[in-house]
């Protein structure tokens, strides 16, 4: 599982806003240059990122294993035709390059996830998006981080409790209905208590935001992002 871990890598010390911009810039270039040569160059960039963030490529790939059927299936299905039944390997090239491009983008985004605590992400959101939308998004995202592990545990215990009462013998629709009813009821009960706690602590639209400052370290990655973003326009 790829998740935040505290550390002292180069990527840990970058401003989260730089890292967010860089991911977008990287994806833009990857979509613009999905050619063998472009992907070789981007592979080098992704390798540097993986090193600078000290992430394991193997772990990253494992975390997105549920997408493999799509990544492998797309080139396959593109190269097959049914009437008449034919296999045209040349048709698989472009979808295969696209699949590879997706993997590179995931490596770069895993670097952010591994090196950025939620507090920094919240600050980045609230400092980038002005006003109430930014405040709503920042607080909302922190709350998702806070409640996900709680709900996850509860969902698994609801499922086990229903299986224990032979719920697993019921038809699928009925099982989904029972499970989801219990899950939604729990969620809303949490929400009602949470909203009292938020109100009591003066939940405000204009709180003091956590500190966030760009440093000299951010200059190279910001410059690289700008270059990436302008490449498809300039070299047209």
């Amino acid at each position: 599982m790829i998740g935040y871990r505290s550390g002292q890598t180069l990527f840990h010390r970058l401003d989260p806003r730089s890292k967010l911009l860089f991911q977008i810039a990287f994806a833009v270039v990857a979509f613009a240059y999905t050619t063998p040569r472009g992907l070789v160059a981007l592979t080098l960039v992704a390798a540097v990122v993986a090193l600078a963030a000290s992430i394991s490529v193997r772990q990253t790939l494992w975390s997105v294993r549920f997408l493999f059927p799509f990544l492998l299936g797309a080139p396959l299905i593109a190269s097959l035709s049914v009437f008449p039944l034919e296999f045209t390997p040349a048709d698989a090239v472009e979808p295969a390059l696209s699949s590879y491009r997706i993997v590179l983008i995931f490596i770069v985004s895993a670097a952010y996830v591994r090196t950025t605590p939620i507090r920094d992400s919240r600050a980045a959101i609230q400092r980038t998006i002005p006003g109430k939308p930014g405040a709503l998004l920042g607080v909302g995202v922190s709350l998702v981080f806070r409640y996900l592990p709680i709900l996850r545990t509860e969902l698994l215990s609801i499922r086990d409790a229903e299986a224990a009462r032979l719920g697993s013998e019921r038809p699928l629709r009925s099982r989904i209905e029972l499970f989801t009813t219990a899950a939604v009821r729990r969620s809303f009960a949490h929400a009602d208590r949470l909203s009292l706690a938020l109100s009591t602590r003066c939940f405000a639209w204009n709180p003091t935001l956590p500190r966030l400052v760009f440093t000299k370290l951010d200059i190279p990655i910001l410059l690289l992002s700008i270059v990436f973003l302008s490449l498809p326009v300039v070299l047209r």
Binding site: S109, A124, I125, V141
Partner: peptide, 23 residues
């Protein structure tokens, strides 16, 4: 939340990559 690292996408994955690069 998923984009900034909460493990909420299929199989408990996370990352902005899901919103800008995933199939």
């Amino acid at each position: 939340a998923g984009a900034v690292g909460a493990p909420v996408f299929s199989g408990g994955a996370a990352g902005l990559g899901f919103l800008i690069g995933s199939p």
